[in-house]
Design a protein around this nucleic acid. Structure first.
Lengths: 159, 159
DNA sequence: TACGAATGATAAGTATACTTGTCAATTATC
DNA sequence: GATAATTGACAAGTATACTTATCATTCGTA
């Protein structure tokens, strides 16, 4: 009989909660104010400046509506600029500000370092194996998510 | 250089999102209206009737305040009863109603079955290994979480 | 080029998941 | 037995993360 604490869904949720908590702690210690989603969005925008919100959502596998709120907060903090696209007046073109680039440069090494802390209970070989399995499972389950990862070129729509 | 899509934190979040989505889909197909948290709470209460909210939170590794809202909704749906404790008038004693027990009996096999769907991309050996690694990582990271799992007897406090 | 379909964004609503703060009740201590 | 510390619950606020619906704009097509 499978106990709740042996179910993949429950374990994934717990590890996610630990991950978010570790992220928040490391960021606070580093003196920055960025959530995991905000970091992911800023990081993706630095690599793909000028994309619109829907494309950004697809790049990091988030829901479009959620990204709207995330960008609101990044804009309020002066980390991201949002302009109406010249080509498509429905779209908001996004790019990091100077301050956004600067914060990202400082936060990036912190985020990389904290990844090991999330998996502090595993030895290096186990970490590698876990990441491999997570990638495989996430890739296979991508279509099952309400916010699938999307190739930069192709739009599939997730509403 | 570690890409965002290779970071454990990001992968865990994506798998969590897939997990929640699979859960919602399977529940909807089964004709039930239970979220993952609500199922976990109801399931824990069936095994531990009469506990208070803080103890319930510790049993399934959730934040106390979050559980308050979850129990609100379970109570509104008539699945859980909440009474003032005779021994400690600060505490609300929780137990599933008849309807709660009945719904749990129907939902339980659905939830067990959906666990494989979450990891549809992995073969059985990989699933076993992933669950082992998740358990190990979650156990080690428990103290790092804002809502640690707690033994039924001991209270450590998480505020 | 008119028109329906599709798309980008937002609005409103629900459900976690956390924060800090407050209050009441209980327990521990002197 | 008074007082301090703790505990259980709730309130208010923030941030995801989703739902459905609406609106404006654009695109595809006849």
């Amino acid at each position: 009989m499978l106990d709740l604490h042996e179910m993949p869904g429950h374990l994934i949720r717990r590890l996610h909660q630990i991950s978010v908590s570790v992220f928040a702690g490391a960021m606070r210690r580093a003196g920055h104010d960025l959530t995991p989603v905000q970091f992911a969005a800023l990081s993706a925008l630095a690599r793909n400046p000028g994309v619109d919100q829907a494309t950004l959502a697809g790049l990091i596998a988030y829901d479009r509506v959620t990204i709207g709120g995330v960008v609101d907060r990044l804009e309020a903090k002066g980390l991201v600029e949002r302009d109406v696209s010249a080509r498509d007046r429905r779209a908001r073109v996004l790019r990091p500000t100077r301050a956004g680039e600067a914060l990202l440069a400082e936060a990036d090494p912190v985020v990389r370092a904290l990844q090991d802390e999330i998996l502090s209970g595993l030895d290096p070989a186990e970490r590698t194996e876990l990441v491999r399995l997570l990638r495989k499972a996430a890739e296979a389950g991508n279509a099952r998510s309400r916010a699938p990862l999307q190739d930069a070129g192709r739009r599939v729509g997730n509403g």
